[in-house]
Write a protein that binds this DNA or RNA. Structure first.
Length: 593
RNA sequence: GAUGCUUUAGCUCAGUUGGUUAGAGCUUCUCACUUUUAAUGAGAAGGCCCUGGGUUCGAGUCCCAGAAGCAUCACCA
């Protein structure tokens, strides 16, 4: 059912067509400038001066190249005053004021082009192109004086209208009636981007971030690769997978939770360094920092260890910050995060000692449990030593690690793919990069002893038997590859979404994904006109049923014929329906009774 | 999954101890207006008050259940 405004716009579309104006023309549109190009060209020539007066007016009606400029974009506002009007155009780069004058748009006696087409048939949201010259108004606003305009697209849905004004006292921009409902913003991201153009900047930065990493890694000679997303065995991380089915092979397949095991196979195969920007899928909870599909870049380099990788990540992320933000200092919420090298490095035990004052490195399980419970952490019998350490770290340390910090040397039980520490028993050569209280990267010296690896997998199988749904599956082919021999290798996974959140100062992962996963939209069940016609209701009575909130044939069947008959009489008057009143028998027939 | 908050016009929001026909601004429509800028002035239209039960003479308002969104927590990156 269409709203009044939608009906209105459809009528305008029809009216344009009747006038011989195609509201959806096919031709290529010639554009001489983007709006930002024009603004930049005049940046030092416009605007109010500090005394409160105005700059002298500019007029480029006879001065190339600004005597003939062509712009294209979406109309975002009108200020109409009789035979002259201002309109606001938005293109991919910014906004520009347009000036329309009746006698210039329609120079002859026929003023239809201005009075009807421009003033009556255009709406906010329509896309047009204009041709004219650059000038400034008395108030100093850079504008385009339109000689001619062309409709490129008649928009049929009203856009939420966001108004922005500069407060003269403070000089700050104030926004009115902002389109803010997160559900609508994420479900209809296109609307979000039209009316909140700053949203587009976030994704431009995200793209810069990805390019920056790609340049960094490619520039060092590492190979960008692609590996399977559909995997017969999901491996490389502890997470619950999505599963699917391949019909011709008649086999179960999983969407990957990580690409680690495939990239290591490529190192076995002889590449010195490989990386992949990978969409991974995890069938787990969703919140501000988790989306079921997310992106990470994983890369693996032969003949290196985790210490080398720490230096590399530090250098890479510092470069990313400079490329994206222009500086190593990035504002995130209330904090300023500085990615300048070197970052702080703490072992996990040192971090716990720093934030709790307790040295847990030599404690047994009972001692750890006491410390954890003293901090209000819920523990149970299934939690071993490493799990307790992890909980303690997550509770006491992680939220406090705002500046980028490397946490190193994790308990072996938590890291089934990681090489045992060269000198510290019970630990592995692993680090996580923590920033703004969240993990952004996870790396290790890769385990390349196939016998050790098999034992670690078998340990995971025992966890799975005990009901751990996130335990890793044993991957025989991966073990076979390791048995041929993998050089010592450093590997890392770095969360692109998490890093993008930090670099663009967005509080939620949904703000750095164009289309975050949402519950399906609830659609009201509505029968078609044809369904009602089939039920015997004549077309002229359909609006009356709609108005009475009978939207499905099923509802019609349940309606009481007497009440329906009475209401139809009222609706006939209210909606000014010309058709003769159906008799009681006919109405009874509609309801199937 | 748990707890709390929210849901009223196309958009942003009011709505009193439960009491006539549910309001405002913007948008839309009509009219006036040749450099405005949240243009202005006059007039009009636009509501399944999230859904379903219940209490009551009477529910947008109170109670119960459900849905969706948000926040916090748990799991996870």
């Amino acid at each position: 059912m269409l709203s009044e405004q939608e009906i209105n716009r459809r009528q305008k579309r029809d009216e344009l067509m009747r006038m011989g104006i195609d509201p959806y023309p096919a031709q290529e549109v010639s554009v001489t400038h983007t709006i930002t190009q024009l603004r930049d060209a005049f940046a030092d020539k416009t605007g109010k001066d500090t005394q409160g007066g105005y700059e002298p007016q500019l007029n480029f009606s006879e001065q190339a190249p600004y005597d003939h400029v062509a712009l294209a974009g979406r109309l975002m506002g009108f200020r109409i005053m009789g035979s002259a009007s201002f309109a606001e155009m938005q293109d991919a780069t910014g906004r520009m004021q347009l000036y329309f004058r009746r006698d210039d748009i329609a120079p002859g006696d026929d003023k239809t082009l201005y009075n009807t087409v421009f003033k009556k048939l255009l709406d906010i949201g329509d896309i047009i192109s204009v041709e004219g010259y650059v000038f400034t108004t008395q108030t100093g606003e850079l504008s385009v004086y339109v000689r001619q305009f062309t409709i490129l697209n008649k928009s049929l849905r009203p856009l939420p209208v966001v108004k922005e004004v500069v407060n003269e006292q403070t000089g700050e921009k104030e926004v009115y009636d902002a389109f803010t409902d997160p559900e609508q913003r994420y479900r209809q991201r296109y609307v979000d981007m039209i009316v909140n153009p700053q949203v587009r900047d976030v994704f431009v930065k995200r793209s810069k971030l990805v390019n920056s990493i790609r340049q960094f890694l490619s520039g060092r000679g590492y190979l960008e690769v692609e590996t399977p997303i559909l995997q017969p065995i999901h491996g490389g991380a502890a997470a619950r997978p999505f599963s699917t089915h391949h019909n011709s092979l008649d086999m179960k397949l999983f969407l990957r939770i990580a690409n680690e095991l495939y990239l290591k196979r490529l190192i076995v195969g002889g590449y010195d360094g490989v990386f992949e920007f990978a969409k991974d899928f995890r069938n787990e909870g969703m919140d501000r920092t988790h989306n079921p599909e997310f992106t990470q870049v994983e890369f693996y380099v032969a003949y290196k260890d985790y210490l080398w990788m720490m230096d590399t990540i530090e250098e890479m992320v510092e470069k990313v910050a400079i490329d994206v933000a222009g500086t190593t200092k990035v504002t995130v919420g209330e904090n300023i995060i500085d990615f300048k090298r070197p970052w702080k490095r703490l072992t996990m035990f040192e971090a716990i000692q720093e934030y709790t004052g307790i040295d847990v490195s030599a404690m047994d399980e009972a001692g750890l449990r006491t410390v954890a419970e003293a901090r209000g952490i819920k523990t149970d019998a299934s939690m071993g030593k490493s799990k307790l350490i992890d909980e303690l770290f997550g509770d006491a340390c992680e939220p406090n690690l705002i500046q980028p910090t490397f946490i190193t040397d994790y308990p072996v039980e938590m890291s089934p793919l990681t090489k045992k520490h060269r000198s510290k028993p019970g630990l592995v050569e692993r680090f996580e990069a923590i920033c703004n209280g969240k993990e952004i990267a996870n790396a290790y010296s890769e385990l390349n002893d196939p016998i050790d690896q098999r034992e670690r997998f078998e340990e995971q199988l025992r966890l799975a038997e005990r009901g751990d749904e996130e335990a890793m599956a044993l991957d025989d082919d991966f073990l076979r590859a390791l048995e041929y021999g993998m050089p010592p290798t450093a590997g890392v996974g770095l969360g692109i979404d998490r890093l993008a959140m930090i670099m663009t100062n967005q509080p939620s992962i949904q703000d750095v994904l164009f289309f975050p996963q949402m519950r399906p939209e609830k659609k009201a069940d509505v029968s078609t006109d044809a369904d009602f016609l089939a039920a015997g209701v004549p077309a002229e009575w359909l609006p009356a049923l709609q108005k009475m909130n009978i939207l499905t044939v099923a509802q019609l069947r349940e309606a009481s014929p007497n009440k329906l008959f009475n209401d139809l009489g009222g609706m006939r008057k209210k909606l000014k329906i010309d058709a003769p009143m159906p008799d009681m028998e006919t109405v009874r027939h509609w309801t199937g009774k």
